[in-house]
Design a protein around this nucleic acid. Structure first.
Lengths: 341, 341
DNA sequence: ATCGGCCGTTGAAACGTATCAAGGTCGCGT
DNA sequence: ACGCGACCTTGATACGTTTCAACGGCCGAT
């Protein structure tokens, strides 16, 4: 298993190294006869092109990176699929990374990819990260912020209009005649969460009849949802909310599970709206009404924007904001059972 | 944004290139004074070490790859978390890749990582892939098959004892007094699926009283589960199974959703057991009994085995098989509501 | 017969880094 | 004052690739 390089192949095939390189990168520029000899030498020797050499010579790679806080969260993994599809159309390889909500991991991956000279990075994060990305960009690696609108005009970003999403949810609940609404989620200082709340809040204000309370629940998981539900259940029945807007589907599902098992009827006693429209929301026994970002096109747009940044056409728009959509299911309008499927 | 290398830094700091390299790789071997000058030069110039050069010189990288068919499947993403944890303890970087169940994508990533000279690869696949990995290994990149026991003794693998898992499920249902069992899943020629069936089948045989039918459902998703449920519902009530073992949790959840919405009581009319113990199984309104592979340790073991392969200590065991565990919840033993939480 | 142009082929140079043997400096013990 | 060792520092070298200018041979046109 000696290390075998392009010149070993050349020797074995009886041609010059340049010819082997041509065979690999511009086949057709090399005569069929020598091509055959080279091909044969390659798998006789088990030659594998060494990307380090190629990249060193070229000064660039053909990879992009997508860093997400949590690949197991369906929201991020569905974006990942769009990213990979679009990237492979453009002959780019995607390196996926899971920062696992850890600042340290996030930084490590940012460094690693920068050192690996990826063409650009797509970064999704729950934390404020623009300063960090500014420095990365200053050193020459384009970045696109994913899932969160950038504050700076210079920082490209692809995001959802969360205010609009919150408004959709709030309006829906209010129009169903719900009067005591609750927003469940947090931390509120995260941009996306705050926006969802303020959208819902605006909808309530416009509608006039309803009230909106905030139940702060920084643990945005199924577990957090269960905890939030228990908080609600501690109150007398007539002071509980009759409409709940959860800042994501995991929270909503956790709440729904506990509420129903304690005898609360959904949606009769309380209607529930989630956010993200993950697959399991639809798969729930009472399918979940949810605010749906355009997952399919989202990843595509992120890659396209990144490619523009890489090409550095200075004049392209730097922000793309997508409008979410409300998907109504049984958790808000259910008669007997969901007709969603 | 001119390309800046280690010698530019050296010039700026007034030291030799070797010293800068030492500063980067063996800090402490360089005097505090020069270290300061170098540090200053580095961020004055926005220097980023070029991994291609480093790797070329070293002849190896410090990355491993984990290729999974579908990162959004909780089974694979929970393994990924273990992999990343263990790898970072060992100062290895993990490149994640999503083959998206596409043979072509799988091959592309295999090539890309091989060319990038990763230290080794962890590969999970639904398809037979040992021949392919054999060739990769022959060219010098160690591979560990994840989630599926290798046929060849030479091929390292980390897997679940699926026969045992199937037996656990079958025994559980039989001991609950269920007599008309159904196995739902497929394709049966996939090793893992076939093993689960044969385990369940053995349990039924041992028990003597029950029967086991097979409902072939190659689409192992929530959607597939819904379809399978509809097949069951077409039959008269008294010929439907009273115990269902689904080859994964997604199928089980999809079935449960449709069955319940059509008035079938779970677990009274039919008890349901899933496989994989994904997070959403527990979060379901009727929490799902499931066969749980040891996710936490699984990723760890995979990395450790890969490291052994890389070190090429010829004598280490090449296969690790883990025993799954049955997690009983309301979908098989529910009185009123699950006490799982 | 000569020339021009085309195609395939060649070998050298450069990309950015880590290492290594060799050299330099300093302080300490004799 | 000398020698020795410990510790830093130095600069050349090699890693595997792509590209580029140059070259040889061949064909058709003149």
């Amino acid at each position: 298993m000696a290390r075998v390089g392009i010149r070993d192949v050349a020797a074995q095939a009886g041609v010059a190294v340049g010819t082997v390189s041509h065979y690999l990168n511009h086949p057709g520029k090399v005569s069929p006869e020598k091509a055959a000899r080279i091909r044969q030498a390659i798998d006789a020797l088990g030659f594998v092109p060494n990307n380090a050499g190629r990249q060193l010579r070229l000064g660039r790679s053909s990879a992009i990176a997508y860093i997400a806080p949590d690949v197991s969260n369906p929201f991020f993994s569905s974006i990942a699929e769009g990213v990979e599809q679009r990237a492979s159309q453009l002959n780019l390889v995607v390196f996926l990374a899971n920062s696992h909500r850890s600042r340290e991991r996030e930084n490590t991956y940012l460094d690693v990819f920068e050192q690996n000279r990826v063409r650009g990075m797509l970064v999704a994060s729950h934390e404020p990260i623009e300063d960090r990305l500014l420095r990365v960009r200053a050193r020459g690696t384009p970045c696109v912020l994913v899932g969160q609108a950038a504050m700076s005009d210079e920082q490209a970003s692809v995001s959802i209009d969360d205010v609009s999403g919150g408004r959709l949810a709030g309006t829906h609940l209010a129009e169903l005649g719900r009067r005591r609404l609750a927003f469940v989620g947090g931390p509120l200082n995260i941009r996306q969460i705050g926006d969802r709340l303020s959208g819902a809040s605006a909808a309530v204000r416009d509608h006039g009849l309803a009230t909106l309370e905030v139940i702060d629940m920084p643990d945005r998981t199924v577990r957090g949802g269960r905890e939030a539900a228990r908080l609600v259940l501690e109150r007398p029945a007539d002071s509980r909310p009759d409409g709940i807007f959860a800042s994501n589907d995991l929270l909503a599902l956790g709440m729904m599970q506990v509420l129903i098992s304690e005898g609360v009827r959904v949606p009769d006693d309380v209607a529930i709206v989630g956010y993200d429209d993950i697959e399991f929301g639809e798969a729930s026994l009472i399918p979940l009404t949810s605010v749906k970002p355009p997952h399919e096109t989202f990843g595509f747009a992120a890659v396209d924007l990144l490619v523009d940044e890489i090409a550095d056409r200075g004049d392209h728009p730097r922000h793309r904001v997508f409008e979410p959509q409300l998907v109504v299911r049984a958790s808000t309008t259910g008669g007997a059972a969901g007709a969603a499927w």
